[in-house]
């Protein structure tokens, strides 16, 4: 082949115009699909993901399970409780009928109470995570993109909220909020308690997401594709939600998936301290609090709820880690 031949070839075929992969499948592999493929390849993430799904299904299907299992979470089996208030039989009364045994004294079935506790816990944690993420996204985007004094104020509030001890504030807020709406001798309804808890998590939790989103937005807003949109006459809404938001989903998803186990832990802690959900409602924190007084005589009562909540949080944490690695391959270590 002569030199001139190459020249004419080069002139005829414009190298930049040749597609990278000239096969006919014309739908591109989006960054999201690539991340999904990476997630699928991560065995730990997939296993923990399935465990997570299992727990979620269990929580959602609690009434169905009750139907099949045949025991309600409030039913008391006093005939299976000995005089010293401990359940009869081995390891806290584990049997074919009561898979995880019975509670001392009241004799309620631990398995079905855990299934319902799962429901409570997941409901509160997911709602709180959704709320905090939404708040964090909006405030983070506004703060990061607009900058100026708005950013100054929001950033200060974020730093301020991070300096507050959550649990101690929660301890303090819970009774004062309750005292605002209910008299000292009123019965406080469960939905109200749950609502205040979610509100508390939202009040303190949005800062993390907001900080993250703000940082991302600050790095994105200098990109030229944002300028391209502005140069075409795009308004603030278009830039924030059509141009920036699609680039924020990855970190938001990761922070959401790691927020859920955080709130599961937080909810259980508040209930453990007696300021969250209270007794007749099935809940991990309440159960463990009560079980501590039986730690010496009936360790099974502590071990079952303790192990379940550990597995639940572990599955969410591992899945969240896997998700982060899949969405941001550079961060994996």
């Amino acid at each position: 082949m002569s030199l001139s031949q190459i020249e004419t070839d080069a002139a005829g075929v414009d190298a930049t115009a040749v597609p990278v992969a000239p096969q006919p499948g014309m739908v591109g592999r989006s960054p999201g699909r690539l991340a999904w493929a990476r997630l699928r390849a991560n065995r730990t993430a997939m296993v923990s993901g399935w465990i997570m799904v299992f727990f979620i299904v269990l929580g959602l299907a609690a009434p169905l399970i009750e139907l099949v299992y045949g025991i309600s979470p409030f039913e008391q089996f006093q005939d299976k409780i000995a005089n010293n208030s401990l359940p009869l039989g081995y390891f806290g009364g584990v049997s074919g009928e009561h898979w995880f045994g019975l509670e001392p004294q009241l004799g309620r079935d631990i398995f079905i109470r855990l299934v319902y506790g799962l429901r409570t816990s997941l409901f509160i944690a997911t709602s709180a995570a959704l709320l905090t993420t939404a708040l964090g996204i909006v405030l983070g985007i506004v703060s990061g993109y607009l900058g100026g004094w708005i950013d100054g104020v929001i950033s200060w509030v974020i730093d301020f909220a991070l300096a507050l001890p959550f649990l101690i504030f929660a301890l303090a807020i819970m009774p004062t909020v309750t005292a605002r709406f209910y008299g000292p001798r009123d019965e406080i309804p469960v939905p109200f308690r749950i609502g205040v808890m979610i509100f508390l998590f939202a009040l303190f939790g949005w800062t993390g997401t907001a900080r993250l989103v703000r940082g991302q937005v600050i790095s994105l807003r200098e990109r030229e594709f944002v300028e391209a949109a502005r140069a075409s006459g795009a308004g603030l809404f278009h830039i924030l939600f059509r141009q920036l938001l699609p680039n924020l989903w990855a970190p938001i998803l990761v922070s959401f998936s790691l927020a859920v186990p955080g709130y599961i832990t937080g909810e259980a802690a508040l209930s453990f301290l007696g300021i969250g959900v209270v007794d007749p409602t099935p809940d991990f924190g309440v159960m463990i609090n009560k079980s501590l007084s039986y730690a010496q005589t009936d360790p099974a009562y502590l071990i079952f709820p303790g192990v379940v909540i550990f597995l639940l949080v572990l599955a969410f944490n591992l899945f969240g880690d896997g998700l982060r690695d899949a969405l941001d391959p550079k961060s994996s270590r």
């Binding site: 186990p261 502590l302 071990i303 303790g306 909540i309 550990f310």
Partner: peptide, 16 residues
């Protein structure tokens, strides 16, 4: 493990 554990559960188990 530590990151997913609950303080009261660990405490209770240590006591047991």
């Amino acid at each position: 493990t530590g990151a997913s554990m609950q303080l009261y559960f660990v405490g209770g188990m240590l006591m047991i």
